[in-house]
Structures are given as C-alpha cells and as structure tokens.
Design a binder for these strands. Structure first.
Lengths: 246, 246
DNA sequence: CGGTAAGTTGAATATTGTCAACTACCGTGG
DNA sequence: CCACGGTAGTTGACAATATTCAACTTACCG
C-alpha cells in the first residue's frame, strides 16, 4: 500500500471492468479490511462472490436512500460519503480509504451517498449474497461489528469536532487524522495527499471553502505546514497537535 | 411505557439497589431493546446474568476512556453520552432513552462518558459475561449489529445537523426528533418532556445556552411552540418540520 | 424566607459566512 | 506551441449569525 494507491489505475472510463488478475490472496488491503477475519477457504469463497469494479473520479457508487443492492470493500482510491439537505447544503460524513467497507450497517437502504473522489477500485458484493455469506460465519459478523463500532467512534469524534471546535482546530485535526489513516494503511509521510477538493474539505468540516482556504494560508504563514499541489506538507506536528488537542 | 418512565423511581440515593421483583418477562422495554432477539430460554438466562441498577440524576454510569467493565440496557430514565475537550468544551453525542443499549460497540474502552440526566434504571451486564453470552448466539449479535447500524445512522444525521444547520433548524430538529423517539417507546404526545438542562441541549446542538434559550423564545413568539416547565408543547408541527426539513 | 441554580434577556463582540474579484492551473484546440 | 476557456483556489471587504459578558428573573430547596 502506497500513496499511489489512493488513485486506482482504471481501464479507460468504463465504470465496470473486471480484471482477471489478482484474487484475494494478493489483495493489498486484505489485512486491514473485514476480510482479515476469514479462513483461507472462506477467503476463496469470498473471491467467488465478489466482483472487482472500477469507478472513475466523480462517479457515484450509490445514492442516499436508494435500495442497498450491494456492499463494497474499497481496495484503491478515496470515496466521499455524504448527506444532503433539500436546498443543496451538503455534509460529508466521512472519506473511505482502501480497506474501508461501505454498507457496513447491512441495512436495506443506503443512509448516505457515496462518490469516488479519485479513481477507485472496489470489491463489490450483492447485498443478499453477502448476507447469506455472513450467515453462519459469526466471526465475520463479529469483525463487521467491530468495524461498525469503530465507525461509530469516528462519527462521535467528528460530532465533537463539528459542534465544539473552531476553524483552526477543525483543519488541524482533519490533516492529522488523515495522516494517521494513511499511516495505518502503510503510507506514512509528513506529506499528506489531499485528493479531495477544498469544497469537500469544507463540507466535511462544516465550514465554507473560503474559510478552509484562509485557514490553510494562515497555518502556512505560521510555518505549521506548506501547501503543495494536491496536498500539504506538515512542518510542525506539535503546533497542529496543539490545535487539534483531543 | 409512559412519559413517567423517563424518571425511574429509585431507592433513596443508593446508586445500586437490586429489586427482587420483575424479571425480563414483564420488562417494559424488552420489545424495543436488543432483548427482543432472544428466545424465551435465552431471555431467562439473560435475566440471570444481568443486574438491575439505579443511578440517581447526575451520577456517572461510566467515564470516557475507562476500561469497559460493563454494558447496559436502559430501562427507565434518560442518559447523556458525551465527549469532552481538555479545556472543558463538551459535545453530547446522544441521549439514551429506555430501550437503548450502552456499550454497543463492545470495545474494551468506553468511547464516551455516560451520566444519568434523570433517575435512571438499567440492566447491567459484566462485559466479559455479556461477550460470552453473545458468543454462539449469532441472532443476538445480528441484533446488536442492527442497533449499531442504527446508531451510526443517527450519528450521521447529527453530523449533518451540527455542520450544516442554523440555530433554528437545530432546535426544531431536536424537538421533533425527541418527540419521535418518545413516540417509538410509546409516549406519543405533542408535549415533549425535556428532562435535560438547556446546557445539555446546547452541548448536543453545538450551540450556547443563550442561543438555545433565545431560539425557544423566538419559536414561542411565532406560536410554533409553548415553553412549559421541563418541556415544550409543540403547536405547529408544520412550522417545525419546515425548519427541520431533512 | 433566603440562598443557590437554572433560565432569560440585552448589548457588544467575534468568528465565520457571503459576495466579488482575481490568480493559478490544466487540458484542448487552433 | 501558445492561446483560450473552464475549473479550482485564494484573497479582500463587508455582513450576518452566534458568542460573550453581564444583568436580571424565576424556580426550587433547605
């Protein structure tokens, strides 16, 4: 897993394109994903019921409120998960990175919409097939539940951020958080790629695009970071940590 | 289940007081709680491993970050779940009502703190005992996972509220939400009890106590509601719905 | 009663949002 | 290869919403 995997190479612009190569055995995210709970024979079966699929940037994986026909395991790329108000205001509730599972709740409708931020590759499972697969595999269900618990915990952190932190703190926490998540999947670096737009960041942090931009400029002036193309380089983790202080 | 059950009668001020009476059979929240997934014999066993416990208002059930020694099923009362920043800022991430389960994630540490808002009664389970109990009962684990998925969905709604709604919309959504939750547990009424303080409401909505107060006054002036002791009476659901518009 | 905690209201302030102009970047096509 | 057009991002001036600080009222409990 490298920073390069934040962008899946894809076959032209076709949203689906099955690659013959690569089963679950050499899947780069297997150990971070729900699949790590599986025995070798189960993993084999998992490979049979899944379908590799590519989504170019800006394409939608599924829409909020739609019948949940499938669940997904992200293997490459970045996905934004969001909710919208009727008047167009948008709140991004999370960015899914390689290893993340979409449709964790296993509910019959999607609670959020999902769009590829960068070219994305996923393992796709029909929801009903996946449900049958899970049935009778309590260890997999336990793993899914662990993931859900983790998601819930992240959501609660984000509530604290949205409700009680100012713009500086929000941006600092966001960058450190993203850095930590990249590190977990093996892309440890002080240069944090930001494949998502300023608007995405704003909609994630409950700010406007202008405030995000100003805050980054301010942090750059303070020598806490440098804005680079499609990312930031963190200069003073201390300074940022201090702002983000959990 | 009535509005009265939002306050548990309790034995003096002792935080623990086992009532001999009442097993799971005549539990008022059984059908709303995780227990509804259980077979009669399992329910019987559940009764044996649980302990009824009372928490007077303002007492803490558990603290953020503490070793998760127990999980709880709330049967009466209201509990606030919150996270705090080092400087004292607080974000309430949810209010638990009768039927709600605390410690759903089954993680080894509590991610949030929990305090009784009103006198509260719970079924308490040692976490390890509960884990053993769940082990080998996939239908119960499924039920817990459903609850977790629901919690996650609520958390995402709350993110949208915190990040993208103004004060009026926040308060209106909060009141309607609470009314709907009371209705689900059988306390349907246009008079919405507010056992929690204005500070609690503010910390839940990402506002200050003054803004909450002003907003309620404003909505009262608009004849959308009337502020009554320990609650509000909703006069114009339409007007509030319009503000809260999901 | 008297004292404390909770809630309301007002005036001033501040942070963030809005609107608008401007700049940088990137791919396309002449 | 450079010009063009479009998108994304930055910056500035001003406005608005919510916060802060403070006074005051009300309700509650001993």
């Amino acid at each position: 897993m490298t920073v390069a995997d934040l962008h899946a190479d894809h076959c032209g612009d076709k949203p689906d394109c099955k690659h013959g190569r690569g089963g679950c055995d050499d899947c780069k995210v297997r150990l971070f994903s729900v699949c790590a709970a599986l025995e070798p024979d189960e993993l084999e079966e998992m490979g049979h019921i899944s379908q590799v699929k590519n989504f170019p940037a800006k394409t939608m994986l599924f829409d909020q409120g739609a019948q949940a026909g499938a669940v997904f395991n992200v293997t490459e790329g970045v996905v934004r998960l969001y909710k919208s108000l009727p008047d167009g205001r948008r709140q991004i509730v999370g960015f899914a990175l390689p290893g993340d599972f979409l449709g964790l709740a296993l509910m019959d409708r999607y609670g959020v919409a999902a769009e590829a931020v960068s070219p994305t590759r996923v393992c796709r499972f029909s929801r009903s097939t996946f449900l049958s697969f899970v049935d009778g595999k309590p260890h997999l269900l336990r793993r899914l539940h662990e993931f859900a618990g983790h998601e819930l915990s992240l959501a609660q952190d984000q509530m604290l951020l949205l409700g009680r932190r100012n713009a500086d703190e929000k941006v600092a926490a966001f960058l450190l958080n993203l850095q930590a998540r990249y590190a977990r999947i093996g892309a440890k670096s002080v240069t944090v790629p930001l494949p998502m737009s300023r608007q995405d960041i704003a909609d994630y942090l409950g700010l406007t695009i202008e405030t995000v931009s100003r805050t980054l400029t301010k942090l750059a002036k303070e020598k806490a970071l440098v804005v680079v193309p499609d990312g930031v380089r963190l200069l003073s983790i201390d300074r940022l940590d201090n702002l983000a202080a959990a």
